[in-house]
Amino acid sequence: MKGIAVAAAVVRYEARMAARSRAVWIGMVPVSLLGAVFGFATLTGQESARLNAGAMAETLLVIVPIGVAAVLADRLRRSRTTGLGELLDTMPLNGAACTVGALGGALAVALAPVLALVAVLGAVIAVRTGDPVAPVWALLAFLLVVLPACVWTAALAALLGLALSVTLARFLVIPLWYWAVYWNYTLWWVPTPVGTVLVPSGEYPAQAWFGTTPVWAGYGQLDWLSPAPAGAATGLANLACVLLGTALMVGCARLMRKR
């Protein structure tokens, strides 16, 4: 119980600090605008609102998680340089709660412009398809497709930021993301998790709940890791794997912070 209270307090203050730091807005607002350009391009209005929402969310994944990662790479490092980390270490707090809270609070703020964008796109889908529940589909697509990917890259970037330098982490996340999610290994073979349930490409959930046709999902390099997308079962498996991966990275970050 105490851990939750601590985490909530950390979330609140981290969110407040993130909201006041220009860096988060200067990074996320342009990224969201770019996302808008991408998102609008995919809205044909030909199919159902559900399908449109799924496709829109998948398109957002091309840039939004990278923006989030770039903005949040310094979140766990920050408290170290200001001496706040040492102060927090002297308090009887749950370290894991602090780490999760620090990342979660900042992530919530960083995703605010994206959420606004999703609302706009949802409204556009509603107009185009004439389906009044389109905004709900858009919101669901955000929660099931965009959010897991952003949580995953945020944890990755924060971990890299602790292990290497923050600037290097900001850059490395870009190739890592495209390698993990979009690398065309038929063109140039390298080992990559593309197409497996391990990575948050959003294809499994999008297929499961929005009916999109996946490009890579099911075609990973290891057959037993890339089951053919088959509705809710594979969708949930993918979400669970992503969550597990995030937890692993946060755990590593926590260990590093302790040192």
Partner: peptide, 14 residues
Amino acid sequence: SAAAASGALIAVWL
């Protein structure tokens, strides 16, 4: 801020 600079940079680069 350097953080703002890298955020803006990556947005523009994308």
